[in-house]
């Protein structure tokens, strides 16, 4: 079967003050194209580390990370940047919006270093803002938006390059339960409409219950993989 994401015996070791921390320890994982996977586990179990490796933000100490046919370990840092720009969308727990930029400008951020005509970039950005229901707030600064609204803008930013893989690290972590549910609803709508692969992490057991596929991490090892 053609997996979208495949981890083969992946180990990530951090050296800290002479001590070695095995954040991931020989992890095998296969994620089908167009699936929705939730990674759960206690704090420090290696969830964020796994997501970083899949998104090419970090490199495995051992093992191979394959995404959409690319062996990420073999890509240069520029090639990894291009890979992220073309294939991956990131959503973070704390939104990571630039506070001086309006919602629209934040969504345009991925285009800034490239020669994309402003009008074209803005057209694309408005399109995705509409999809996340934030068109009306396009010209607001993050400070003028609620947490849930900020996360919607961040999701729009992650979608502006039409990624086939969306990685979300605790996207509801800083939101109250109801707002969090709304954001999840939005993600699931986008998942249906766009057919993209989603890998997200969560602390919340209820999210895990509803998820079509769950990966449970414990001390850097996969202890359960349910579909």
């Amino acid at each position: 079967m053609d997996y979208h994401v495949e981890l083969k015996r992946v180990t990530r070791v951090f050296a800290k003050n002479g001590e070695q921390i095995r954040a991931l320890d020989g992890v095998d994982l296969a994620v089908a194209r167009g699936s929705w996977t939730v990674v759960v586990g206690l704090s420090g179990s290696g969830k964020s580390t796994m997501l970083s490796l899949i998104g090419g933000l970090d490199r495995a100490t051992e093992g191979e990370v394959w995404v959409a046919g690319n062996d990420l370990g073999k890509l240069s840092s520029d090639a990894l940047a291009d890979f992220r720009r073309e294939k991956v969308g990131f959503v973070f727990q704390s939104f990571n919006l630039v506070p001086t930029f309006t919602a629209l400008e934040n969504v345009c951020l991925p285009f800034v270093p490239y020669k994309v005509a402003r009008a074209q970039a803005e057209k694309k950005a408005l399109e995705v803002l509409e999809q996340v229901g934030m068109l009306a707030r396009a010209n607001h600064l993050p400070g003028e938006l609620s947490g849930g609204e900020q996360q919607r803008v961040a999701i729009a930013r992650a979608l502006v390059n039409d990624p086939e893989l969306l990685l979300a690290d605790e996207p509801t972590g800083e939101l109250d339960t109801r707002t969090g549910e709304k954001v999840l609803e939005l993600l699931s709508k986008l998942h249906r409409e766009r057919g993209m692969t989603i890998v997200m992490t969560s602390h919340d057991p209820r999210i895990a219950e509803q998820a079509p596929a769950v990966v449970r991490l414990e001390d850097g090892r996969v202890v359960a993989h349910a579909t």
Binding site: G55, L57, S77, D78, A81, D82, R84, R85, E86, F90, F92, N96, V98, L109, P110, V112, P113, R157, N161
Partner: peptide
């Protein structure tokens, strides 16, 4: 964090440096 975000969004190292 902002620099990390930029890189996550596909900015190359040299774009951030620039």
């Amino acid at each position: 964090r902002e620099i990390g975000t930029m890189k996550a969004l596909g900015w190359r190292d040299r774009h951030v440096a620039r």
